[in-house]
Design a protein around this nucleic acid. Sequence first.
RNA 1: GCCGGGGUGGGGUAGGUGGUUAUCCUACGGGACUGUGGAUCCCGCGACUCGGGUUCGAAUCUCGGCCCCGGCCCCA
Length: 430
Amino acid sequence: MELQRPRGTRDFLFEEMRKRKYVEETLRRVFELYGYQEIKTPLFEDLSLFTLKSGEGIMEQIYHFQDKGGRDLALRPELTAPVARLYLNQLQKSPKPIKMYYFGSCFRYERPQAGRFRQFWQLGCELMGGKSPDAEGEVIALAAHCLEELGLEDFEIHIGNLGIIRGILNQAEVSSKLQDQVMAIIDKGEVEELRNFLEDMGLDDSYKNILLELISLQGHREVLKEVERMVGDNSQAKDALLELTGVLNVLDSVGFSNYIVNLGIARGLDYYSGTVFEIYVHGLGAQKQISGGGTYNLIELFGGEEVESTGFAFGFDRVVEALKEQGTDLPLKKVVEVFVAPISPEVRLKSFQIAGRLRKAGIPTETDLAGKKFKKLLSHANNLKAGYVVLVGPRDLEQGQVTVKDMDSGQQELVDLEDVVDVLTERIRG
RNA sequence: GCCGGGGUGGGGUAGGUGGUUAUCCUACGGGACUGUGGAUCCCGCGACUCGGGUUCGAAUCUCGGCCCCGGCCCCA
């Protein structure tokens, strides 16, 4: 085959698309339940939008190119920066809070593997101008609501706050550059590597032990007491802890308490500042994270007026994959409800007429376009999983009737031509 | 960028230490069967990932590319 798909990309066929659409529509519905409005940004942006503040790591993965005018452009590797850009361009003076959601594909030049592609989809949101911790609590509640609505079980929401560890590091007077490196190691979850790194930078033992203990803490809200003991009178860390407590309070009050406090969450992108969270589903191979987000200060970094911003995104493909893995039966729409089958060539136009009326009545309908023999038409209708077949034949037509056949039960009845639409509407909707 | 496993009709496969027409299932088209589907039978369509090398001869051996699967790095 000489015409191949580019590496790391996929074609989606009918069945797959129906699943994806179901997931997409469900997620959109829930986002809208929380008052989010959809936006769309370009697939490519100025390269600098992404190189500016997203950290070094992402650079190597960016698809970038020059257009014919010599502009340096990049296919977006994520959507938070484009949305922040859009906010700066047009929404700074809009009434707050602003709730936006998006669904679109992103591109990263990476080695494909399970749950990782070069083009992948993100469905997420950004909330600008909400106040921590209420805004963060609601955002996490929204994420949980989405997954519950999809029927996904066994997901874990891990919640942390970067301010706690940053507070300790600041108190220990660690430079911000070094702090970023520490955060990167924490994000990896490599405890030994962290221990060695902290030792190499000559960090005081007491700080080192606190940090190591903090990131290994994981559990329900009772771990907050431990944290409180450890941070002592560090005011930045105390504030962060207060914030974290507030987030959990919101979650408890909306009835979602199945979270895990995890201070080892650091996020890969450098612009996160306070509350952060990640959602995992096991059984997805190496790519178990289906979502991540938190509070960030991208707007200030881009030179805008300070505004609290929180957001998160689902790795859409991974959510779909997790549902498949779990074996969830998605309530997928039928391709067509009704197939209108002309029994012989002279009634073909009559079939079109009937199909036309059914379609105008909102019933997905198919009729023969391939000139198949009657018997094949039934077989074809069966393949399409049509619920009903309208048999249009000269014999019935003489009485002004057609035969409506229920494809599940096999039963059929004669129906007057003018009643066909009503009868089928009743059967399908009723 | 690195490591491992792969690539045979549309889908799933057999063959593989070189040798006629490349196996089977399924799907698809037609027929048996001119008003009744999911059954059966018959016929048909259709493939060795690409390029180089070794050879009288390569799907098979060899080198390289491309792509797929899994893992590392990193991330969604």
